[in-house]
Design a protein around this nucleic acid. Structure first.
Lengths: 204, 204, 204, 204
DNA sequence: AATGAATGAGACTTCATTCAT
DNA sequence: AATGAATGAAGTCTCATTCAT
């Protein structure tokens, strides 16, 4: 039992690493098995297919992410503080070189007919949960007159995609320098704070 | 001559459509040939490999995009106006369902060893050209004291990625409704304007 | 008419060169067309298939070779002189870098089912003619008691193959130095005339 | 382990047979797989490409041949005896219908750019080893005054090629009758030992 | 006579998955 | 629970040949 748990965990970890490095299509089941120091057939004892394994990782990653942003925001009263904390968590997530979330495009993979069924069932609800959580904070902020804007979904997608791309671009353009999370955070806060939130003077 | 141009153009158009729909890996050369109503072998008369064809499309798409944002911005004096026009063009580009730019992740594909060589030679320079162009406007704005921020690259990556994701997310969540470009534009302008640009009161 | 002759001749010459360089399988009809500065389709006006073209070249080459050895030997009375002259012609033929006979293995190609039909009809008779011609001289020599041996076919095949291989091997091992025909000729004459081993009398 | 050894051996044997029958270019990987009663993909578990498989067979065949001629000659003191034993082995090798050495032209295949790299690394050294071995015996014989001639390389190439062609020609001309090794051997020995032409003394 | 764009059968190779041990 | 040899469907690319101009 313990050993089973371990093997499954090992596979998940190694697979996450390799999917993150090579992407879904370029990753071979054999790469994963080798990296996990097990036989190819063993992977199939724990996951019924490549799609299943991949979906399981996204599932786990998204659930963890959901927890993180919830933990980081739910005990703040102020929507501004909540959003800023969520943004910090996003940057943390995306800036982590090992994490594959930054690399994986859920939209794109959802269009793959082999993955779609599994994704629709297992990933979409979680994804929507995260999206709704972020959106609901913005919605609340708008209602309270603290946040400007009319379409919370667009706003949260904009911020999420913006941060992801800022992190990716850094890697892409100058992958030798390690990414300075603080700089990105500051830049994003600057944009968000003074534009997104009405300041007291304005509120008057 | 005319016929050659036509066939090549047809292939490029059909391939763009299918690569956009299915992604690079799921697209088979035969799909493209069938869609172009030609034989598989004919594609190879015009493009030496799948990589070459794909790269050619990205190349063309990025060059067109570069032209568009240049045309839309270069005759404006004000950096704010320039940036807003570029943003409008981005939205136009990403919101276009047929366009595959929205779907393609250059960062990810650059990591594919089969594509890397071709990409490094043909795509990276154009990509960098676009990036540099947007960045230089922000840089100039910062110098003139009209734009806040210290890292133009991060800012432009943030905006670009944010817009892209806002468009993708709309498709993803409610792909039946056609995307209203004006709404996205307004939301982005709202965020950008009041946050990114110092207002006269602030400048004082 | 003149122009047709010319085009056909040009194709034959260029094809011979390229088949000689690359071998039958690696030579593409397009290589030949390009080398002859004509369109691919034009080749098919003169030769009905790749097999036909190739066979035509072997045919021509073997016929020429037959003429050469006949001319070089038929007016000699002595079988020894005849054979030596034939050997000189063989060396001349094989040592010629441009000639493809040295490179082409008729035995091998005869086993290719696509070539077999054509070869059986057009090449085999010529080939046999040459073989018979050489063999008949040896036969005559044996009858007259001037040549030792019981199997003229084996003897002529041995000499032919030996010369061919000596020429090929030179190319293979030291292809920079140009092959010295005289040296090969001398070595072959030595063996043929007196054998490889010194007899005791000679050794004295 | 046993099974792995077996499958690899089976593939090598079947491939040797088919390459021998059809030649390198006409042999399809599927032919080999079918002949070995395994799936196409299985071949690739043991050999990384068609080139690799083919090269492996030549490698093995040449190494065996090297051993054979060494074993057949190294304990003889006399160069004449050594050479004659080597010749007998050659005839044995070439006369074997199943053996593909007789059919394969290393010179020709070395010019194929797909095979060249592999050949240069793996085949050329062995080939040269065999060639050098035969040549060194002739060289020694010349030094001791027992063998006539100035170019051991030419002499060994001549004998090797001569025997090969004599065997091939038999197949080619009358492939129904089984080849009588003794007859070829006798004919070759005759030429080697005393030359083709009776000298006047003998003629008396 | 000549062209060269187009065809499509066919070859090599990959890799997710299975299954006997 | 674990293995890894074996499978075979599927994908990329080549090239002899055709045919409309």
């Amino acid at each position: 039992m313990v050993s089973q748990m371990n093997t499954k965990e090992i596979i998940l970890n190694e697979a996450e690493k390799i999917f993150g490095e090579k992407g879904y299509y370029k990753t071979r089941m054999e790469d994963i098995a080798r990296s996990a120091k097990i036989a190819k057939g063993t992977v199939y004892l724990y996951f019924k297919s490549k799609q299943d394994l991949f979906t399981s990782i996204i599932e786990k990653t998204l659930l963890e992410f959901h927890h993180r942003i919830k933990n980081a925001s739910e005990n703040k009263k102020d929507e501004m503080a909540k959003l800023k904390n969520i943004i910090s968590e996003m940057i943390e997530e995306f800036a982590n070189k090992e994490m594959f979330m930054r690399k994986v495009e859920i939209h794109r993979l959802m269009e793959d007919k082999d993955l779609r069924a599994e994704f629709k069932k297992r990933i979409f609800p979680i994804f929507k949960g995260i999206s709704d959580y972020a959106t609901s904070i913005i919605k609340e902020g708008i209602k309270k007159g603290k946040i400007k804007g009319k379409n919370p979904e667009i706003i949260s997608a904009f911020i999420f995609g913006g941060i992801r791309n800022a992190c990716l671009m850094h890697d892409f353009m100058k992958n030798k320098e390690s990414l300075n999370k603080k700089i990105i955070e500051k830049e994003v806060f600057n944009i968000i704070e003074k534009g997104l939130f009405k300041r007291k003077k304005e509120a008057l």
